[in-house]
Design a binder for these strands. Structure first.
Lengths: 223, 223
DNA sequence: GTCAAGAAAATTGTCTTACAATCTTGCAAT
DNA sequence: ATTGCAAGATTGTAAGACAATTTTCTTGAC
C-alpha cells in the first residue's frame, strides 16, 4: 500500500456517545453553571452504567468542560470574568494566526464554502434564531481553522471556544451584536479572499476584541 | 471568613495517582512510541482494578498523551514530523506572548528565582546529566509561564510541551544543543530582567525555532 | 430562634465478577 | 502466497458490593 489511509470507521462506544451527549448538554446550557451533577442520576437519565459514565466524566474533566473534585463529584464550572478574559486572550493569540495563515493557503473551493457560511450567518443574524447564529458562526470559523494548515492549532482553538460557549451564545443575543459581528466577519472574509495576511490578522483581532467586550457586557447584565 | 481560600487538600485518588504515574512513565520514555498497552497488564503492574485504570486512560487520551481507538485499546502516539512541527508552531504563538507578558509583570522575587533556575540549567548543561537538563529547563519555563498573568496560557502550554517531551529530551542530548540552548535562555532572561518586551519576544522566538530544528535533527538521526 | 454537635442518609471511590463484542493469531485449505 | 475460519485474547459494558467521605437532618444547648 502506497499510503496509510485511515479507513477505519470508528465504532461508536457508549462512553464516546456519552461524552458527546453531555458536551452538547453543557453547550446548550442544559446545566446551570455551578450546579452539581450526580452520577446515579446521570446514569438513569442516560441509560448507562456507572463505569461508562465515569469514564466519560474523566474525558470531560480533562477538557475542562466540567470540574471534578474528589469525593464531591462533577460540577459545571462557574467561570469568573478573569478566566473568561484569559481564554479570550489565548484565543486571540491563536485565532489571529489561524486567520493569517488561512489567508495564504486556502483553496478556491474552501473560499467559496467560507462565503456560503458567511451568507448563512447573514441570514441568521437578521432573523431571531439565536441557535442558527451560533451554528453558522461555528461553521465560518471551522472552515478557517481547517484551512490554517495546523491541526493542533485547530484542536486547541476548538477546546478553548468550547469552554466559553455559553458566553458566546449569550453575547450573540445582545442587541446589535449580531449585526456588528457580521460586519467584522465580512472584513475577515474579504481580507482572506484578497490574500492579504496583514489585513486578515487585523480584522481577526478586532473581531475577537469586540466579541470579548460583548461577552463582558453579557456577563454583567446576566448574573 | 474574609476570603474563600481553598484549604482543601485534594485527597489523592487511585485514578489520579495512576494518571500521574502513567504520565511520568510516558515522559520518561518507558513506553516505546507506537507500542500498545494492555489493560490487564497495566492493572497488575500498577496494582489497581480495571475500572480505575480505564478512567485514568480516558484522562490521558483527552490530554492526547495516549491514543485510544475503540476495541483496540491504548497505545503510545507515534508522532509524525508534521505533527511535531504543528505543535512547535502553536507553542511559538503562545510562548512568545508568554515571555513578552512576563517581561512586563514579573516581580523581583520571581525574577531572582528565574535567575536561579538559569544557573541551575547552566550547571546541568555543562554536566552530562540529561535528566537534570530537562528538569531545570522545565523550571525555567514554568516560572515564566506562571508569571505571564494568564493561567489558561500556562495550562495550554504545559499540555503542548508534554506531548513532545520525548523529542525535547532527545534533542537536548544532541551535541552542543545544551550550550546553544543556554545562550538563548540567557538572552531571554536578560530581556525579561530589562523589562524589554520586544527583545524578550524576539529572544523567545529564536529559542523556539532553534529548539524545533534541533528536534528535527534528533528525529532524523533517531528513527 | 440560632447555633453547634452528632447521627443518618446520600454520594463517591474502588474493586470484583461477568459476559458480549471485537480483534488477533494460528492453522488448514485452495 | 493468499484466503477462510476457528480459537484465544482483549476490550466494552454492566451489575453488585462496600468503605470513605460528604451532605443533610436531627437534636440539644444557649
Amino acid at each position: 500500500m502506497s499510503q496509510d489511509i485511515n479507513l477505519r470507521v470508528s465504532p461508536r462506544t457508549v462512553q464516546q456517545e456519552t461524552v458527546n451527549t453531555l458536551r452538547q448538554a453543557i453547550f446548550s446550557g442544559h446545566f446551570e453553571p455551578g450546579s452539581r451533577l450526580v452520577e446515579s442520576q446521570l446514569c438513569t437519565q442516560l441509560g448507562i452504567s456507572r463505569p461508562s459514565l465515569r469514564e466519560a466524566l474523566r474525558s470531560l474533566a480533562a477538557e475542562r468542560l466540567i470540574d471534578l473534585v474528589p469525593n464531591r463529584g462533577p460540577s459545571i464550572p462557574n467561570l469568573t470574568w478573569e478566566e473568561v478574559t484569559a481564554i479570550y486572550e489565548v484565543r486571540e493569540m491563536l485565532e489571529v494566526n489561524a486567520v493569517g495563515r488561512c489567508s495564504q493557503r486556502i483553496s478556491k473551493e474552501q473560499l467559496q464554502d467560507l462565503e456560503k457560511s458567511l451568507v448563512a450567518f447573514e441570514e441568521a443574524a437578521s432573523s431571531n434564531d439565536s441557535l442558527a447564529r451560533i451554528t453558522t458562526t461555528e461553521d465560518f470559523y471551522s472552515i478557517i481553522l481547517a484551512n490554517c494548515g495546523n491541526p493542533i492549532l485547530e484542536e486547541i482553538h476548538r477546546g478553548l471556544v468550547a469552554r466559553i460557549s455559553l458566553f458566546r451564545s449569550r453575547s450573540m443575543s445582545l442587541q446589535g451584536r449580531a449585526i456588528n459581528s457580521l460586519a467584522e466577519m465580512k472584513a475577515i472574509y474579504e481580507a482572506i479572499a484578497a490574500g492579504d495576511e496583514k489585513a486578515a490578522r487585523n480584522a481577526s483581532r478586532k473581531h475577537i476584541l469586540n466579541a470579548m467586550s460583548a461577552a463582558k457586557k453579557a456577563m454583567e447584565t446576566a448574573t
